[in-house]
Design a protein around this nucleic acid. Sequence first.
DNA 1: CTTGACCTTGGACCGTACTCCACTGTTTAG
DNA 2: CTAAACAGTGGAGTACGGTCCAAGGTCAAG
Lengths: 121, 121
Amino acid sequence: MRIGELAAQAGMSRDTIRFYEKVGLVTGRRLANGYRDFPPEAVPWLHYVRTAQTLGFSLAEIARHGEELREAPDSAQALSVLFEQKIQVIDARMAELATLRAELATRVDTGCPLRAIGRPS
Amino acid sequence: MRIGELAAQAGMSRDTIRFYEKVGLVTGRRLANGYRDFPPEAVPWLHYVRTAQTLGFSLAEIARHGEELREAPDSAQALSVLFEQKIQVIDARMAELATLRAELATRVDTGCPLRAIGRPS
DNA sequence: CTTGACCTTGGACCGTACTCCACTGTTTAG
DNA sequence: CTAAACAGTGGAGTACGGTCCAAGGTCAAG
């Protein structure tokens, strides 16, 4: 799969994919003519990258997670550990959001002005 | 309140506060000697800025919301609307997280590698 | 054999959000 | 009176995440 098709499938620009390749987020082989050739798995992987990004993970973090996965690719147990770690990160993020949500919900009821927000301990 | 104390109270650097003033996120008067003088409300406001930021709002958005609030400062209802909007943003983010979490949880059980993640529709 | 769509590279540029620096002025404590 | 601790300014630099562009190579269709 060449870069244009991958870009279309992943919903991002060719430039972005080249940038991602540069920072190690995607890898592909080269055809004889120098064109990049990506495997079909690149499509779901890039979708995953977008998702993780909107969840607040930096490209560096995402790349690192990807490498960890590639380093222990055949151990289902190793994979499970990694997934569990990620889930913990997600749970922490969700807890933060829940706290903020509760704070805001209180203000909705009281009409308490913004200046009083975030006045914790 | 001078910039150093505000920085300490708000948990950010003086430079950051000067930067925020430059982009209109905080305003303060000036003392005779040229020093900035911030009102006490600047402290919770900056805490709020930090909060909103972690929710994914850009400084420009936060500044704009702040202006909207200053334009209708005595309407508890207007405030509630804004808070409700923010809560919706939070809920959307939490839902996304829950989705990713569920995806990952599935992989934990199956040991199915990441390349199969995000293979939607 | 040209046209157009695709690909390559390197490098410049952008917006966001700071962070650091040098140099200078002000205030406060001993 | 002096030294430290604070304040001011302007401007450069950083990190991240792209985005755009020019100059050129490749390939399939007409």
